[in-house]
Computed example of a mutant assay.
Amino acid sequence: MHGGSELQSQKSLSPLIPVAAPWRKSGVAALIDRGNALGNAHDQASRTMLLRRIAALLDQPHLAPMDAWEAVGTDAFLVPSEALEIHKANEAGISEARDFLGGVVPAPFVGTKAITHGLVDDDALRPKQWSNDMARLMGDAALPGYTAFSHTDAAKAGRLLLAKGPVRIKDVCGKAGLGQIVVDDVEALDIVLGREDALTLATHGIVLEENLTDVVTYSVGLIELAGQTISYWGSQNLTVDHKGREVYGGSDLHIVRGGFDALRKLELPDNLARAIDCAAVFDEAAHAAYPGIILTRRNYDVIEGTDAAGNRQIGVLEQSWRVGGASGAEIAAFEAFRAEPGTSHVRCSTVEVYEQITPPVGAVVYYQGVDPVVGAMTKYAMRYA
């Protein structure tokens, strides 16, 4: 980030009413793995700004990033960049919700798109900790589809789905809409699956689901921080990156105090109410199917679109149990609620564009500069109402 942008971001920090938290911590720190890359420059800058604002919100120091060995010897409030497997959380001293912002899962695949669908049949290959209860409990809260952990199962699942129309094949770890391809026939299906490494498939899995057209993607989320809970519904925006791809361009969120029950009390159109119900069902199913999950930040992408038969469908696409693209708007809402005790609803947004622009007055700049990998970018968060 350019020096001028950093100065602008620092000046945009608004005074906050200190949180009367039911706990005290030594500060707020990013939890990192020093053996892995920290991400692109814009990711690192955005993460630093997010941590600074969380620390200011909690009226606590912003500490330097820590790895697990450093964190376990402190009482810091930790913010990992990914959902943590239980043993990694334990290594960092995370044992309960008050310790961190994000998610703790019993196995790596539980934090990915893999759990969105069930297996193609009872004989399908699966990880040791796989739960068949997840798909059963979700019912129709997700789109028709399957998760597969072998070429054989993926091929069988793809053929079943192709009988109804085009199939979307998804990398379970893909982000920002990347790592996906749509196939229209068996030949294309087999070509795509033939590129998949068997060991990677067995470890992570792959998702195949009915492809929808004329789509809109909703965001439904719930965050618990410092003894407070907010939830929201909203929509995602797309933008074009420097490679000409349509990618995540930000989120517009309508945020309320309280959890999913508070969202369900809002007077909303049927499609939005259905999207919220799908996210809540997914959340409940995950907790029931995978006991031991600890979630303090969850965001669910819910799609509405038209299937091959011309019917409109709504279902959860994936979960995000980590800080993400919408987190700037989430923290902006916490700030607004803290500063305005009588306010019960706010509208906040995040924006990501692949050029250097001047953000609106009052925006919190998360990144503005030329990323050495992805090129020029501007990222900011804004409260609108």
Rank of each mutant, 00 (worst) to 15 (best):
G103N: 05
D43G: 10
K88M: 09
V19N: 14
G102L: 09
D43C: 08
I115G: 08
P65C: 13
R47Y: 13
A56H: 01
G35Q: 15
S81W: 09
G103K: 00
G93V: 06
P61V: 13
W69R: 00
L78V: 02
W69G: 02
M66A: 03
A37M: 07
R98Y: 01
L101S: 13
K88A: 07
K113M: 02
A83M: 14
A114Q: 05
S14W: 08
L58E: 10
E91Y: 10
A55K: 04
A92D: 09
V105T: 14
H117L: 11
V105D: 13
A107R: 11
A20I: 09
L50V: 14
N40L: 12
A114I: 01
F77K: 06
G39E: 00
G93K: 01
R98K: 02
N90F: 08
P15H: 08
A45D: 13
P18Y: 15
K25R: 07
S95M: 07
D99R: 09
E96Q: 04
N90W: 02
H62C: 09
P106Y: 05
W23K: 03
W23H: 03
L51G: 02
G103H: 01
Q60F: 07
G39P: 06
R53Y: 01
D99K: 07
A92C: 07
L31E: 01
S81E: 09
N36D: 14
P80D: 02
R24F: 00
G93H: 05
H42V: 09
H62W: 06
A114W: 03
I54M: 11
A83C: 12
A97S: 15
A107L: 04
V19Q: 15
I94D: 08
S14A: 13
P61S: 12
V72D: 03
S14Y: 09
D59C: 03
N90P: 00
L38G: 13
D75Q: 06
R34W: 07
L101N: 14
P108S: 15
S95K: 09
R34L: 07
R98H: 10
A92K: 08
S46L: 06
H87V: 11
L101I: 15
S14E: 11
D33P: 02
L63A: 07
L101K: 14
P18R: 09
P22G: 06
I86H: 10
R24Q: 10
I94A: 03
V79N: 11
N90T: 03
H117F: 10
L57E: 08
L50N: 11
A83E: 13
N36A: 15
L50P: 02
P108E: 14
T116G: 08
G35V: 14
V105M: 15
R52Q: 07
A76E: 08
Q60K: 02
S12I: 01
E85K: 04
A37T: 14
S12V: 02
A83I: 10
P15F: 08
G27D: 12
R53P: 06
S81K: 11
G27V: 11
V104M: 07
L31A: 00
P15C: 15
L63H: 02
E96M: 04
L58P: 09
K11N: 09
A71Y: 13
E96I: 00
E91V: 10
K88I: 00
G111F: 00
P65R: 11
